[in-house]
């Protein structure tokens, strides 16, 4: 564990940076609040037309889904392809390579550092929004809550792993903004952030189920609601874990071969 101490320090420093940019952070948060409120009104309208359950969701459950999605989307917002891409392109990674640190772990420490603060802010805002809109469904069973926490943690790791892999594109292209937007578009659709996957047509749902993105929103949200039976929940959380491990390793592999190409052939 002593070897991990340095990464803890990096995470702490990274958390400090967020306080330096508190105005930017606040605006970011305000932006997402508007977004979540808009989503609430949109879904409220849909549910008003169709009283009762829709796609298996009651209105309080749908509200809970939206709040969970909001909270998960509000974490790890300081780690993106654009930042890491410019570090790669402008050669700032050379500084990292001159230090006795693991590149992926360092990036992870930087990404995870601000998460506790983001989480507290998002929980606060989420609670206010939930109260204003007349409350949300709570987990029926403490087991669901416990499993949800596990699933949400995996969702955050998954987010890191996906962004880390996508960032490696920076070794071959300069248009990281486009790459990032593409990743976000795909993620918003297939994670279930915009529309729960249950509303998808069969073929699209099948497609979503083989992608890692469902583990970012859909799996933790459905776990929170207890919408899946025991074995399914276990399977879905297991799938999340497999994706996390797989993509983390894949990211390491990508980095290794990319940096090799750069350090062997030149940029």
């Amino acid at each position: 564990m002593r070897g991990l101490n340095k990464y803890f320090s990096i995470a702490k420093a990274s958390l400090e940076v967020i306080f330096v940019y508190r105005a930017g952070f606040a605006f970011n948060m305000i932006g997402t609040v508007f977004y979540v409120v808009a989503m609430f009104y949109l879904w409220q309208t849909i549910f008003l037309g169709k009283p009762g359950a829709l796609g298996g969701f009651t209105w309080p459950e749908m509200k809970a889904y939206l709040i969970v999605a909001f909270i998960l989307n509000s974490t790890m917002t300081w780690f993106d392809e654009w930042t890491m891409g410019s570090d790669i392109r402008e050669g700032r990674v050379a500084t990292d390579l001159a230090r006795p640190i693991d590149f992926q772990l360092k990036r992870f420490a930087e990404a995870i550092g601000p998460v506790p603060f983001e989480l507290v802010s998002a929980l606060g805002i989420g609670a206010v929004v939930a109260v204003v809109f007349g409350g949300i469904a709570l987990p029926a069973d403490p087991v669901h809550l416990a499993l949800f926490i596990v699933s949400a943690a995996l969702a955050t790791l998954l987010k890191f792993a996906i962004i880390y892999c996508v960032s490696m594109v920076a070794f071959w292209t300069t248009g990281m903004e486009g790459v990032q937007n593409a990743r976000m578009a795909v993620q918003n659709i297939f994670s279930g952030a915009l529309i729960p996957l249950v509303f998808f047509p069969e073929w699209l749902r099948g497609f979503a189920s083989v992608l890692p993105f469902q583990g970012m929103i859909s799996t933790p949200a459905l776990t929170y609601l207890g919408a899946m039976d025991g074995p399914t929940t276990a399977f879905m959380i297991g799938t999340q874990a497999v994706w996390v491990v797989g993509l983390m390793l894949f990211g390491r592999l990508l980095w290794r071969s990319a940096i090799k190409a750069v350090t062997i052939n030149g940029g």
Partner: peptide
Amino acid sequence: WDIPVIESFNLARDMYE
């Protein structure tokens, strides 16, 4: 870049143990 110089030194302390 964004945090006090002394904090970077502390970070070096932990990185190099």
